[in-house]
């Protein structure tokens, strides 16, 4: 009876959302995993052949999967740190009340609210052979014709579009830093950098963790910008995991294979997130 009472409250808080989540997300997720074990036939009622782990073996042996994974990895590595650093930097500059503050907040948030398709087109145009970037820098670079220069353009878009998002979360978190601690630290004679390190960072540490984990997930799941800026060209060199997966599934209708790639990516992201969660937890203890 005691047990029941103890768990009744959390159960009631969690049940409505969790039920919805289980039915509309987890159940389809299990179906997607099941798909990856078949040569899955898309049409209702068609018989799919069970293939066991064949799709996974095929994915691991597919050089294009590895190429696209390395592109997603590069994107993640070059977009996550700048988004955290710049997002936090802007949030620190904007956290105090001032007349200009709401105005600046909106300006920095504007890229977040514009649609991915539209800004991808815009950046494609900025990085075109005769676009604004070459024009401004006096260069003659075919940015989107080569794997690495194209990744520069794609990453630039990712950072530009993402700063406002992390800024928002850091702004919210900075409201929670107790003013008393900052005052105390000032009295102790700590400079701004010292205060930032000893007071602010520990206070917003869970938020740093949240932002980092979310950005890593988002970085490895990059899709729309690549699809619209290069479409994987030239010859698939700029494919990322999801553009490659999308083509397998929705163009070649090879859903078993597409699902296997998606599941592998999910496992990788999950492992990375678990490592990060542990890292951030340990760091707090220290």
């Amino acid at each position: 009876m005691d047990q029941v009472r103890r768990y009744l409250a959390p159960a009631l808080f969690i049940a409505p959302g969790m039920l919805l989540y289980l039915v509309f997300i987890v159940y389809p997720m299990l179906q997607a995993v099941a798909m990856s074990l078949f040569d899955w036939q898309v049409v209702a009622g068609a018989v799919s052949v069970f293939r066991g782990l064949d799709n996974y073996a095929r994915a691991l042996a597919d050089p294009r999967v590895w190429l696209s994974l390395s592109n997603s990895g590069v994107y993640m590595l070059f977009t996550v740190p700048p988004q955290i650093a710049l997002g936090l930097g802007v949030a620190l500059l904007l956290k105090d009340k001032s007349p200009a503050q709401p105005f600046f907040r909106v300006l920095y948030y504007l890229p977040v609210v514009t649609s991915w398709v539209v800004v991808s087109l815009l950046f494609k145009y900025l990085f075109a052979d005769k676009g604004l970037i070459n024009w401004g820098l006096g260069l003659q670079v075919s940015w989107l014709s080569d794997r690495w220069t194209a990744m520069v353009a794609i990453c630039a878009l990712g950072v530009w579009k993402g700063i406002g998002w992390s800024m928002m979360i850091f702004l919210a978190a900075l409201q929670g830093v107790p003013q008393a601690l900052i005052e105390a630290s000032k009295i102790d004679g700590a400079g701004p950098w010292m205060r930032f390190r000893t007071v602010t960072i520990p206070a917003i540490w869970p938020t740093v963790a949240f932002v980092t984990i979310m950005l890593v997930i988002g970085g490895l799941n990059v899709f729309t910008s690549v699809q619209n800026m290069t479409g994987g060209a030239p010859g698939g060199d700029t494919d990322v995991v999801l553009t490659y997966m999308y083509r397998q599934a929705f163009e070649f209708l090879d859903f078993g294979y597409g699902s296997a790639i998606a599941v592998l990516l999910t496992l990788l992201v999950f492992a990375l997130s678990a490592i990060q969660l542990r890292f951030f937890r340990n760091e707090t203890m220290a």
């Binding site: 989540y21 997300i25 997720m29 997607a32 209702a44 799941n221 599934a249 998606a262 599941v263």
Partner: peptide, 19 residues
């Protein structure tokens, strides 16, 4: 719950549609 953030939404579309 976190797993739901990680699986590409595209892969859920067909099972979700059938559901």
């Amino acid at each position: 719950l976190l797993l739901g953030l990680m699986i590409p939404a595209m892969m859920l579309i067909i099972p979700q549609f059938i559901l």
